[in-house]
Amino acid sequence: MTDIQLIGSPMAPEAEEVVPALVGAERVLQPLARRGVFRRLMRDWTARIGFVLVVLLVLAAVLAPLLAPHEPLALDGGSFESPSWSHPFGTDRLGRDLFSRILFGARLSLGTAFFASLLITFAAVFVGSVTGFLGGAVDSVVMRVVDTILAFPSLLLAIVVAGLFKPSLWSLMLALASVWWVGYARIVRGLVLAVRERQFVTAARVAGGRSSRILIRHILPNVLPPVIVLATLEMGTLILAISALSFLGLGAQPPTPEWGAMLNEGKNHFFSAPHLMLFPGLAISAAVLGFNLLGDGLRDVLDPKS
């Protein structure tokens, strides 16, 4: 007997009921908290480094007004000063303190990436889970749209979308989110399809659960952990993308202290004042590394088999 691929696994007769909006997030996330995820995460030293890096950056962002020795926009030093006690990272062309600018830049770079990531995740989980769960025509149509968007290089497409608006961090964030969610949605849909076929979902149907209940109570809790891992790993990529687009002048505009924009400002003085590119570059690298290490650690810990 040859192996046979069954396709178009017919959707449940109950699926006629429409899936309502995704509610009850606390129920969905609750099991994660209970399983001692943090304790196990801290056992792995690379994850620990990632966690420390991310926490430091977040603290820097939150506490920037307290930590910064100078106003990020104040012109209170000589231009191109090298690192010193009063200006740990030196000053830029206009005499602004680079250290303070990087601290405040953490707010913008991390914040933009975080909100973009949030938007992306919500859109992807909603679209991916509804299409994956319902299947049929809705799924086919939405997924063809997704395929079409995926056919373009995402950064290029984001540049085009961002170019439609007046350049700002907001328009940059929306542009990134509008392009980035599709890849996620595909992954979420795949996860939903896999979980949908698992036996405990059948058990929930036999119990007489409504489709919405099955999706929220059984499928999403098993889909979210990998999505969280993905979102964490993707934070690094988003930070890079935001910096890149700002570097190209599509995002934050001078004098906003965004890391990518700062790199852009520093590029003309690379040989005379390399610290102007070195420190923002290090900040970007630290953020990307931190989120990647943390994401890798989360992946190991959130696997139900562990």
Binding site: Q199, F200, T202, A203, A204, V206, G208, R210, N222, P304
Partner: peptide, 23 residues
């Protein structure tokens, strides 16, 4: 159909796969 579920129930083969690991 959901009413019918009260009268017809099921026991599964795989005691691992049929129980939601997160409940």
């Amino acid at each position: 159909l959901r009413e019918l579920r009260r009268d017809i129930q099921m026991i599964f083969q795989d005691p691992v796969a049929s129980l939601n690991p997160r409940m």
